[in-house]
Design a protein around this nucleic acid. Structure first.
Lengths: 236, 236
DNA sequence: CGAAAGATTGAAGAATTTCAAACGGGGTGG
DNA sequence: CCACCCCGTTTGAAATTCTTCAATCTTTCG
């Protein structure tokens, strides 16, 4: 029986979209026109509806997924079955890589948060591309080392900081992303944020209230938060 | 003023040792004789005494370090200055890679735990090797994705499991390493273990006592622990 | 409009840290 | 070779942080 999957389009039929898809992704955007075409021809694009799974833990991995449009929730289950949100993918991000170079089995779950368009490159095609264009490997190595760094930093935060500090640091990083403005929009629900930060929705709610009480932030409608005192936030 | 550093030997003068050093490392051990020689000629070996730093956070990164003999403690400081032990390197492991492919600045600290021999490959030499032998990149990609997986799994554990469970899981993984025997030797002090697991030495001490009380383990001399009930341990 | 999911708040309880004190073992210098 | 000292370890008690459970409120979305 078929598992839930998205609607498939052959790459050749959507060169316009494909072009944008591949060139969006940092690991490919240094290549020349002809090389890009070659990659486009090995890729196909798939649309996933909200709630559909791109892959699940335990499944055989056989492709790299490049996000073209939409958002994807990557989460894990711990040995004892509790869920943790690992990251959210946006256009330009990619996933599936862990299993590609590993034993080939996914360790995490990837779920479309809304209608999402992804480009798919099959494992065998990717391996050929990597050997043919070694600079792609260097790009992926760079991306991996970034992610590894991020992941280790996150681990260190869990290991050494209390919840309120982790929340404050998260808010501060949102500021970096939306430069200039001191108003951020939470990129996820507070429930997901709690999962991402390794705590409960109740605690997130309370700690945000505390931060507001202390005059460091101001919560507004629609997940918007104004940062009143960034320096103070980082001292929490 | 010179910072603390190890004693330097030119690679050419130690072919015997070099050979062992490079071939020990999984990312190179698939290469042919001649290629191995080429790498050996670009590497040099350095000895660090106990307590010496191989590198520190904030320093410019310019080399890959392959551990030949000894042990290296990799740790991070959180934004608020608290230390966390990230991993311990043993012969065959390598480090320095994060900064190599990233912005070039170390995010962690590497300290020799005892007299330690490392092979060093300079950044520029490595880049050349990677472009010349694309299979090395694939090996490193594989190693990276393993580490990333490990790191994310660790993060998920911090996010979802309580201390006692994390300790139990750690012990269970030690069993995997020392197969057959049900007696493990803690690879580090309980103080370091606490740092690695994101807790305090007091809590480690207490939780181990609890596990012993419950008949799941038996603590012996010299960091040795006998696992009496592996299944029970994983249910904690 | 109404159901379902997310968010907030309070109160009780559990888990963990912190501080303090005492103990032990391994390594070093005499 | 022994004694001493330092550092890691253990244990206790108090304090803190966080979770859990339950009830209520709000928002979203069909």
């Amino acid at each position: 029986m078929e598992k839930t999957h998205g609607c498939i389009h052959e790459g050749e039929h959507h060169k316009g979209t494909q072009d944008k898809c591949v060139s969006l992704v940092p690991i490919f955007n240094h290549l020349e026109e002809g090389q890009m075409d070659e990659i486009m021809n090995t890729a196909r694009s798939i649309i996933f509806q909200k709630g559909e799974m791109i892959y699940q833990a335990g499944e055989q991995s056989d492709a790299l997924y490049l996000v073209n449009k939409g958002k994807i929730r990557i989460y894990r289950l711990s040995e004892s079955g509790k869920e943790q949100l690992v990251r959210i993918l946006r256009p330009g991000d990619f996933t599936g890589e862990l299993a590609l170079f590993n034993e080939g089995v996914h360790e995490s779950y990837a779920e479309a948060m809304l209608e999402t368009l992804v480009c798919v490159i099959k494992r065998t095609d990717l391996q050929k591309l990597l050997l043919k264009y070694p600079t792609i490997s260097l790009k992926i190595l760079s991306e991996f080392s970034n992610r590894l760094d991020q992941s280790e930093k996150q681990t260190t935060r869990f290991a050494t900081e209390k919840v309120e500090t982790r929340i404050a640091m998260f808010l501060a990083e949102c500021i970096d992303a939306e430069k200039d403005s001191h108003e951020i929009v939470l990129p996820m629900s507070k429930k997901d944020l709690a999962s991402y930060l390794g705590t409960t929705p109740e605690t997130v709610s309370r700690k945000l209230a505390d931060l507001e009480q202390d005059g460091l932030i101001k919560q507004k409608l629609h997940k918007k938060i104004e940062i009143l005192d960034l320096d103070g936030l980082l001292l929490v």
